[in-house]
């Protein structure tokens, strides 16, 4: 396959940045999107130019590192996959492909296609955990009975890999799908219920402070999420938040 690539190049966070055009040829339709970018980078290095910086790690769709807004869609045109799992056969020979970083005030560009997603880490640090004393006497989790349905839903929510596609695709740049998945994975389990009210309050507060937008229920995030995180989680977080606001005994 021969392709024309329009890639966002930006030296650092202060640089204005611009789209630049590159040509790649003889790309196998069976290669992944990131492998295609590897070919481009090798080409650039051989020409003595700066390679394109992009995030990647496991390349099997579970780490959440890869991002990229490809031809106007988060993780490209395929559904339920990350960019590393996107195959070049989804494109046609001769196509022009636009590759841009996630666009969000909360995800500043570090370089080229790499954005800083530590806003997500700070939201997790605000409440995305269960406080457990690791004294050596921690009881086996299986000792606590959990209804199968709840365990399944918690597990579904926990499959969120924190890639940020929901924020990138949302017209409002809202992080509600991510935060709601993280709230849900704990709120559904007995271990997480203890801190449920405080958790949802603190995580939502941090989310707002990071500068993410508001949810207007367009449902775009659910469609673009590589892990199929459901809007049901956002409703659950809204319930948890409402409950926390009304019945919380915390004085703050």
């Amino acid at each position: 396959m021969n392709l024309t690539l329009k890639i966002w190049r930006q030296k650092n966070k202060n640089d204005k940045g611009r789209l630049e055009t590159y040509q790649v040829s003889n790309i196998s339709p069976d290669s992944s999107f990131l492998e295609m970018l590897d070919v481009l980078n090798e080409q650039l290095i051989n020409e003595g130019k700066e390679p394109v910086a992009f995030d990647h790690d496991c390349r099997e769709g579970i780490c959440g590192m890869c991002s990229l807004y490809i031809n106007g869609e988060a993780h490209g045109p395929d559904r339920g996959v990350t960019t590393c799992q996107l195959h070049m056969r989804k494109f046609k020979d001769g196509d022009t492909i636009y590759i841009e970083p996630w666009r969000s005030a909360a995800f500043p560009v570090i370089k080229d296609l790499v954005v800083d997603r530590s806003a997500f880490d700070r939201i997790m640090a605000a409440g995305g955990f269960v406080s457990v004393n690791t004294s050596g006497n921690t009881q086996d989790a299986n000792n606590i009975p959990i209804p199968k349905d709840d365990a399944d839903k918690a597990f579904d929510a926990a499959t969120c890999i924190g890639c940020g596609a929901c924020v990138a695709t949302c017209k409002n740049g809202s992080a509600m799908l991510f935060v709601s998945a993280k709230v849900s994975q704990f709120a559904l389990l007995p271990q997480g219920k203890v801190e449920a009210t405080r958790r949802v309050h603190n995580m939502v507060k941090q989310m707002d402070e990071e500068g993410f937008g508001n949810c207007s229920n367009t449902g775009a995030c659910e469609v673009e999420c590589p892990k199929g995180i459901s809007l049901e989680n956002i409703a659950r977080m809204n319930r948890e938040y409402l409950k926390a606001s009304i019945i919380s005994e915390d004085e703050e």
Partner: peptide, 8 residues
């Protein structure tokens, strides 16, 4: 929340 728009 999105100061820079997408080109596409």
């Amino acid at each position: 929340a999105r100061p820079v728009k997408y080109a596409v």
